[in-house]
Structures are given as C-alpha cells and as structure tokens.
Design a protein around this nucleic acid. Structure first.
Lengths: 155, 155
DNA sequence: CCACATAGTTCGATGATACAACTATATGGT
DNA sequence: ACCATATAGTTGTATCATCGAACTATGTGG
C-alpha cells in the first residue's frame, strides 16, 4: 500500500478524469469544465450576475464574459439586463440550457455509477465525506488567489 | 444540505486548488500541474522513457517532448540515450531536480497540513480512502481515452 | 539492403485563461 | 444638475498547455 500523498492522489484523479484535456471531459460534447460548471451553478443558484458567476468559478471577469457569451450563443443561457441596475447581466439557463444541464448531470451520473460500482459502499461514503470536507476546508483557507474574487457586496 | 454530486464536488476542489490556472498551483513557482506531476513520477519510478512518462501523465508524445525539454532546460531532468536503443530517452531527475521535487513535496505537504487541520481525523481518513479507491476505479475503467496511451510494452 | 515499426521532435492550430484598457451605468457630494 | 469615482461587463493582446500531423532517426526482420 503506497503511502501516496494526497496531492498525488488528487492529481492522479484529475488526470484520469481528463481534466487537462478540455474536450475530453465529456466525449462528444465540446464542453469545457468551466462550461459544465457554469451550467451547474446556474441551474442551482438561479439568476447570477457575471461577477457572481465569476466568483463561483474563480474566473476573471473577462473569462466569464467570453464564457457566457459562448453559452448564450449556443442558446443555453440568457443574459437579461437587471431592471434596477442595467450594468448587471442576469444570467439564467434557457430551457434548452436546463435540458442540456440535466442531460449532462445524467451523463455524469452514469459515469459515476460505473466508477462507484467498483467501490465498496464504505469507500463511496468515504469519498463523498472526504471531498465535502476538503471543499469546506479549501473554501475557508481560500488563500486569496491572484485575482481574488471580490465578495459580491451584499450591500 | 445540498445533495452535491460527486462531479460537482470534484470540480469544486479542482478549482479551489487552482487547477485551471497553471501558474497558481504553487504560487511563486512557475510550474504546471504536468510538470509537478512529471517530477513526482520520475522521483518514484526511476528511469522512464518519454513514452512511458507520457502514459503516466496521459499526455501526447509531442506534449511530453516539450515538457521534458523544459525540465531539462531548467536542469531538473536529464535525458540520456539508452545504450541499447538509442531512440529512447531515459529520463531521470538531476540532483537539482530531486531537490526541487523534495521541496515541492514539502511545500505541498505544508499546504495539506493546513487543510487537514481543518478536517476531523475521520474526514482525513475518509478523504484518503475515498480518493485512493477512486483512483483505483479510474485506472480500471480507464477505458479508452482519445489518444489512448499505449501500454508501455513490458518487453 | 529494404520495408516497416518505434521513439522522439517540430510545426501549426486551438482554446482557456489572465491582464489591461475601454465603455456604460450608477452614485454621492457639492 | 454635474462631475468624480466606483462598478459591471467587453474587447484586445498575450501566454501557454495541449493535440495532431508530418518529419527524422533509429532499430528489426525478411
């Protein structure tokens, strides 16, 4: 039993999941991780401004701008101007976008299922518990990345 | 309590660790994930040909070629020709490379430590167990990525 | 010795990202 | 009202990791 480091483990998992190959995340779908992630975020937390989406995705606003432009072009996301503050772009999934997202989730679930079948129930539980905890820890120690996503001022 | 999907979890973790921002993995070190990973692989499994390294990293041979060229340029990796088959480049860490790798590992361990402090012992154990199992499962179902890395012929 | 296989390199393209400079809109003080 | 400043988003430019294809060099088997 190799005492593999946690980083090593995580890196292995990243790679095997094809994280360094944008096109490969979901074979056949020309979707990047960011796009998938964005759809998921919008599906859950209803209307988000681009800045808000950026702080979820940890992406620079310019990257978000282009990202959502693409999603809009595909007809998956709508960008409505906020009535109260027309600088804001309120992002929502279109119906088609919601459908795509559902399909994506399903697709990924299937992939999970395959993977999970190979884990014992105990391992599955451990994986979820561990990742959830890790994410929590990461969020807290969120050691101010370069483009430190500004806290959406709750103002 | 959101029933966060596993993919979602994993993606969150990716992003918070800065996996989409090459430079950001280890602030101050201009190292990509692949480079870090390559150093680690060489540290463990002694001399590897580029093809072998490629199948570890899941990278195309051309990508490996450039990657190791960079590492060599920095003086971290040596590329010796195999005496028996001079087509092969036997990759090894230089002393400096080994030192760098050790430093990297230490650096990352520290980061772990910070993160782990925020997890309960139980969560830590769960994380390691879960990731280990997941990696195993990924390796097994490693079914057919596009550029399917050829099995390094055990010759 | 020639045909073919294998290891690696180089070239060109793609795509995700950042940063900086810009536009448009909002807000607050005088 | 008006200007200064702040904020949201866009556009332009650069970087860089990656792939695929075409190439070179080396090994191998008739």
């Amino acid at each position: 039993m190799e005492k593999t480091s946690f980083d090593q483990l995580l890196m292995d998992v990243f790679r095997e999941m094809g994280a360094h190959r944008p096109e490969q995340i979901l074979p056949g779908w020309s979707l990047t991780l960011s796009e998938i992630y964005a759809l998921g975020a919008l599906a859950e937390r209803a209307p988000l401004s681009q800045a808000e989406l950026g702080s979820v995705l940890l992406l620079e606003k310019s990257s978000v701008s282009r990202l959502v432009a693409q999603l809009e072009q595909r007809g998956w996301v709508t960008r409505e101007r906020d009535a109260r503050d027309s600088r804001l772009r309120l992002l929502r999934l279109s119906e088609q976008g919601a459908a795509i997202n559902a399909q994506l989730q399903r697709h990924m679930s299937e992939r999970h299922a395959e993977l999970f079948e190979q884990l014992t129930a105990r391992e599955q539980a451990a994986l979820l518990e561990g990742l959830t905890a890790l994410r929590r820890a990461l969020r807290q120690s969120q050691s101010r990345p370069a483009h430190t996503p500004a806290e959406p001022s709750a103002d």
